[in-house]
Computed example of a mutant assay.
Amino acid sequence: MALINTAIKPFKATAFKDGEFVDVSSEDIKGKWAVFVFYPADFTFVCPTELGDIADKYEELQSRGVEVFSVSTDTHFTHKAWHDSSDTINKIKFAMIGDPTGEITRNFDCMRETMGLADRATFVVDPEGIIQAMEITSEGIGRDADDLVRKIKAAQYVANNPGEVCPAKWKEGEATLAPSLDLVGKI
């Protein structure tokens, strides 16, 4: 799981997005910030709460130049059926990638091999295709889109302000730190 600061691997897949099946690939994110949200399976319990939470933040993420891709080992056909049958999933506007072979899930090292399902994992990828943040939780622990947005804001701030870092619980507009010998032992 040493994926931080590594490039994502090339991929091609079919996704369900905005009522259509679309081809997506690693080429689609070049030059853009991206979030990959892996989840175990469609028609489950925690997964729709997480995806619905991210759907509520999608417009804000788009305004920050961030594209969102949800990924499970279900097919794009299953994503459409879930979208059509669930009020929560119906509000999703981002691409729901089908990964039935598990190639993308394995590329991000979050496949539960004995089950053929993705872990509950999130990856923030910068415009160069480099993983800047990741979070993986166990099956029953849902993720929080507010914290995801906060991490993206911090990653974008650090990328745009070399020599500065964001401390714990940093919020946009708050003070950052400039690591230096003078700061050692003073925090």
Rank of each mutant, 00 (worst) to 15 (best):
T49F: 08
E50K: 10
E50Q: 11
L51K: 10
L51I: 15
G52Q: 14
G52A: 15
D53F: 02
D53T: 06
I54L: 14
A55V: 00
D56P: 10
D56E: 12
Y58V: 09
Y58E: 15
Y58T: 15
E60R: 05
Q62T: 14
Q62R: 12
Q62K: 15
Q62P: 00
S63L: 03
S63N: 14
S63D: 15
R64E: 11
R64F: 00
G65R: 11
G65P: 08
G65Y: 11
V66T: 10
E67S: 13
F69Q: 13
F69D: 11
S70C: 00
S70L: 08
S70V: 02
S70D: 02
S70Y: 02
V71Q: 07
V71E: 01
V71I: 13
S72I: 11
S72D: 06
S72V: 08
S72M: 04
T75Q: 08
H76K: 14
H76F: 13
F77S: 09
F77N: 01
F77E: 11
T78H: 03
H79A: 14
K80G: 02
K80T: 09
K80R: 15
K80F: 01
A81N: 02
W82G: 00
W82A: 07
H83R: 02
H83E: 01
D84N: 13
S85N: 14
S86I: 12
S86G: 09
D87E: 15
D87L: 08
D87F: 01
D87V: 06
T88N: 00
I89H: 00
I89N: 01
I89P: 04
N90P: 04
K91M: 11
I92K: 01
K93M: 06
K93S: 06
F94V: 13
A95H: 05
A95W: 08
M96T: 11
M96W: 10
I97D: 05
I97P: 08
I97R: 12
I97Y: 14
D99K: 05
D99Y: 09
D99S: 07
D99I: 10
P100N: 04
T101V: 04
T101I: 01
G102N: 04
G102Y: 07
G102P: 01
E103Y: 07
E103H: 13
I104E: 03
R106M: 14
N107L: 09
N107W: 13
F108G: 02
F108T: 09
D109S: 13
D109M: 10
M111W: 03
M111E: 06
R112G: 07
E113F: 12
